[in-house]
Design a protein around this nucleic acid. Sequence first.
DNA 1: TTGGGTCAAGGAGTC
DNA 2: GACTCCTTGACCCAA
Length: 290
Amino acid sequence: MIRLGYPTQNLTIPASTNRTLRLASLGDPEKLRAVVWENLLGLETILRWNAEHGIPLFRMGQSLIPFASHPAFPYDWQAEHGDDLREIGELARTSGIRLSMHPGQFIQPGSPKPCVPERSLAELRYAARVFDLIGNLDSVIVLHMGGAHEDREATTARFVEKLRPESAVLRYLALENDERVWTVPEIVKTARSLGIPAITDSFHHGLNPGGLTLEKALDLSLPSWDPPDARPKLHLSSQDPAKQPGAHAYLVDLQDWHSLLSALGDHEADVMVEAKGKELALAPLGAWIG
DNA sequence: TTGGGTCAAGGAGTC
DNA sequence: GACTCCTTGACCCAA
C-alpha cells in the first residue's frame, strides 16, 4: 500500500502550522503564545481534515513553536504546551496519521564552524522533544546532510560524531538525499553508521542520481526502514518548469508519479508530496493508488 | 492599501 | 559579487 501526505499547511481550509514572528518580537511573550496557539490549533484542524479525507501523513512546520531552540525564548514551552501536544498526539494516533518535521537548510551538524553544529543540535533536540510530547513512535525528523565543505569524508565524520551521542534525536531521525551534494548511496551509508533510516527524494535523486536508477536507489534506502513499525518514507515532487532546476512545482507531474510507482514495484511506502499546491497535489495521485 | 525588501541561521550553484 | 534555490510568513517602509 502507498500512503500519501503533504507538508506544513492546508490551502483548502485554509490552515497553517508554520506561523512565526520576528526575533525582535520574542520580547512579547503574549504575542508569541498567541502564534503558538494558532499553530497548534492549525495542526489540530488539519489533522481532523486529514482524517475526514483519508490522508494519513502530515509534516508539521518547523516554526510550530517559533524560536523554541533560541536562547532568547522567554518561557518553558514544554510545560506550557505539553498538554496540547499530547492531545494532538492522541488525535493523530486515533486518526491513523503519521507526523513528521523537516528542519531547514540552516541545520548543519557537519559544518566545520563550531557554533553551527551546536545551534543545529539545539534545533534537532527541540524537534525530538516535540515528538516526545506527542508520543507517537512512528514520527520522523527528516534531515539533509547539509554542505560538503570541500571534504566529503571529513564532513561525514563530523556529522556522525556530532549526532552519535544524540540518542533522543536519533530515535526519530532519518536522512534524506539532496539535489546537489549528497546522493542516496552516501546518505544510506551515513544513516547506517548512525543506525537510522534513509529517505529517497525522487526529485532530488533525478537531479543528483550518483549513477543509480531510481529503482536501485530505492533498493538501498527501503531496507533501512523496519516495517511494520516504521514504514519506509519517500519524498515526491516535480520541477517547476518556469524556474531553475530544484524549484518545486505546484502539482506533481504524473510522469514522475508513475516513475516512482514503477520503481517501487510491490514495496509499501509513505510518500510525502512536496508540492507548492500542498493537499491539492494529492487528488490527481490518489486515483492511481490501487 | 499595496508591494517590495528584509528578517536567526548555511551552503552550493548559476550568471 | 549578486542572485537563486532549498520554505513561509512577519513586519517595516515607501509609494
